[in-house]
Nucleic acid binder design. Structure first.
Lengths: 247, 247
DNA sequence: ACCTGAACACCGTTCAAGT
DNA sequence: ACCTGAACACCGTTCAAGT
């Protein structure tokens, strides 16, 4: 923020009027924009504007918007620290790794959308794939199934991150709209689920007996979303262990 | 194609110059466009063009593009037939239901993207939710966990459908690019995975020992993708049964 | 050699003016 | 009352012309 005025005695030669462009600067600016305005609002023009240049200049450093977003995705993944032996056995470490990946990606709005269109091959994606497969192998999952298992976990991470991002976005909108006075965390998540509750609540027991019967459980299901995600991950790992362990 | 000239003796009164617009016609035209050109290429302008009108006219029937795509999503889901007792026990039926949902959604390009941004509440989404929860309950899953289990299955359906759609799109591109002579199914899926194989193959055993060690399993993992999806679903159901069955 | 102004071919959405 | 032409405020990407 104060960088440009912090060293007023720099000569023009050592302090250029603006930071020089680079592939890294473009990617970092795009990630900042993802966090501030949402993935959908990240346009080449806005990234350029944030860097004090024109949109055409970006094409010196990235091929197109798709490639830029793929790099932003990998930069976001750089924020995921790998668990170590201090975090417990292989299963505890794997659960921690998946949880961190979901939290980190979900914290950068819809950046996980990138992983849906194209399979990520950036250095950080490969770093996390290596880590998860190593943990699966340590858990005794058969070698031939480790890639499939890792793929299932990755699918879970991506979709959970997008679910988290959607919830955070929804909460942000509600916080901006409603009175800030009584916008408690609880009130916000209650309001966030209310549209869904309405869709379920208006159904007839004749046509939708099970939904109607389980309505209390359905409305409370969205309450503790982190607990929900942890439970789901547990289910997947349980399933992996049931049949597919090396003898 | 020949509709306009098929009944030349119709009076103008009984045969209007063009089919009258309606919400249903707009949604159906949009789904046709999804199949023909891909979800990303579905614009209000192109939908209007397909209906021989201007983009502004669509806003009489749908609030905006988001609402239109949500309706297209539910129309796509209408193509999923529910399994019945003739298809086997609850587990066989549930697996069939999930498989049909993935195949159907994945066959309409990226339409499943709609389910990521907003939780679907259309009649067909509710029909499938009712069916899956009924089957889970029949399988003995505890009432309080059925909504969570159904949510996990839904997450799996959505992400698997998008994975399938991406693969089909990739194959279509390759088929259009390469010689049609030797574009066999096998050659195409081999080429489709080759970029990923390259990303894995170039890694050093020092930095990525597990990926390198499991390389043969990784490259064959993408081969039988339907078998892969079935296996993953089996893992999830196994996990659900392990701990969460009603006593 | 590196950078970019201006242009091209698009978008979603609105609204005044028509029938 | 219903429909829509034209416009507004945007897009991603290209390329000729500058330095």
């Amino acid at each position: 923020m104060t960088d440009r005025t912090a060293r007023p005695r720099d000569t023009p030669r050592t302090r250029p009027a603006k930071a020089p462009l680079s592939r890294e600067a473009v990617i970092a600016a795009a990630l900042r924009l993802v966090d501030e305005t949402g993935t959908g609002a990240v346009t080449m023009r806005r990234v350029a504007q944030a860097l004090d240049t024109g949109p055409a200049s970006l094409y010196v450093y990235v091929a197109d918007r798709d490639e830029l977003m793929a790099e932003v995705y990998d930069l976001a993944l750089a924020g995921v620290r790998l668990p170590g032996p201090a975090d417990g056995d292989w299963r505890a470490q794997l659960e921690l790794l998946v949880d961190r990946a979901i939290t980190t990606l979900g914290g950068h709005d819809g950046i996980a959308l990138v992983a849906i269109t194209r399979a990520p091959t950036g250095p950080n994606a490969l770093r996390l794939l290596e880590a998860s497969m190593t943990l699966l192998r340590a858990g005794g999952i058969d070698d031939s199934l480790c890639p499939w298992a890792a793929d299932l976990l990755d699918q879970f991470v991506t979709s959970s991150a997008l679910e988290l991002a959607a919830r955070l976005r929804h909460q942000r909108v509600l916080a901006a709209t409603g009175d800030s006075a009584d916008a408690t965390e609880a009130a916000m998540s209650a309001a966030a689920g209310s549209e869904l509750d309405a869709a379920y609540g208006n159904l007839s027991p004749d046509t939708h007996p099970t939904i109607t019967a389980l309505l209390p459980a359905m409305t409370t299901a969205g309450r503790d979303s982190h607990g929900h995600a942890t439970w789901k991950l547990g289910v997947i790992i349980d399933g992996l262990l049931l049949h597919h362990r090396r003898r």
